[in-house]
């Protein structure tokens, strides 16, 4: 175990947006450093900081997971409350706030579905629409399933084990079909990741590229909405059939 005798770890060279341009403690000017150059106090991260910037990754969907993990660990070594146990209350509070933000960023970007939802929120306002009707290509399948589900729920002990068992088996088969659909949604979503990433590559965003981006975002939004709709039905099925 090597011992680091400096009172603070070296601040990574890369700068991310901080809440203020002046140190909250000694009022000296700062340029995105995590720790004030003069009084070495930790500085609060900007509340508007987006998760991609926070974890030093371009706003793409096929992220370099290892690099993101590396940044996450590095930033924890700077901000984690364990390193501020001897500091005053203000520094403790900033460390806590920064680490909570950092954890939220990592949790969101680590999971591909959450990552996509977050990106859509950033780029298009909201991640998905709440569906009240089944997606068109599943319409009939789901309508029939819901009728079966209603029937199953209305069954009583008088209906005989055979009837109950039969319907249960049918519903379980339906559930498996839907779970496969879920997987398909995921595959289709991931296919769009590459499309989005290629549109992010040019340094200048022409109106044409923007239009294509908006189209991809819309497609991903639809897939996510359908996926959530199907997931809710799967949950209903699990609850009803056990």
């Amino acid at each position: 175990m090597s011992r680091n005798l400096t009172s603070q770890p070296p601040s990574p060279a890369r700068a991310i947006p901080m809440a203020r341009s002046m140190c909250w403690h000694c009022q000296s000017e700062i340029h995105g450093e995590y720790l004030c150059g003069r009084c070495v106090k930790v500085q609060p991260l900007s509340k508007e900081l987006d998760y991609f910037t926070c974890l030093n990754t371009p706003r793409i969907l096929n992220i370099d997971e290892e690099a993101v993990e590396q940044t996450f660990y590095e930033l924890n070594r700077t901000f984690h409350p364990d390193f501020y146990a001897n500091k005053d209350e203000s520094e403790k509070a900033i460390s806590l706030g920064n680490t909570a933000l950092l954890n939220a960023a990592y949790r969101t970007l680590k999971d591909p579905i959450q990552r996509a939802e977050y990106l859509i929120r950033l780029e298009a306002g909201s991640a998905k629409e709440i569906r009240t009707a089944p997606p068109a290509d599943l319409f009939e399948e789901i309508l029939e399933l819901q009728e079966d589900l209603e029937e199953f729920r209305s069954l009583s002990s008088e209906d005989g084990a055979e009837t109950v068992g039969k319907l249960r088996a049918k519903l379980q088969a339906d559930r498996e079909t839907l779970e496969r659909r879920q997987e398909q949604f995921k595959v289709r979503l991931f296919e769009k990741f590459g499309v989005w990433d290629s549109l992010q590559r040019p340094s200048v965003e022409t109106p044409e590229i923007r239009a294509k981006k908006d189209a991809v975002l819309k497609e991903m939004q639809d897939i996510l909405s359908n996926r959530t709709y199907v997931r809710n039905i799967v949950n209903d099925l699990i609850e009803a059939t056990g």
Binding site: M1, R3, N4, R77, D82, F83, N86
Partner: peptide, 16 residues
């Protein structure tokens, strides 16, 4: 060991 981390003497280990 965690006490050592909090006291600032051990910076190379960190629990998340």
């Amino acid at each position: 060991i965690q006490a050592g981390i909090l006291s600032g003497e051990h910076r190379d280990m960190l629990l998340l």
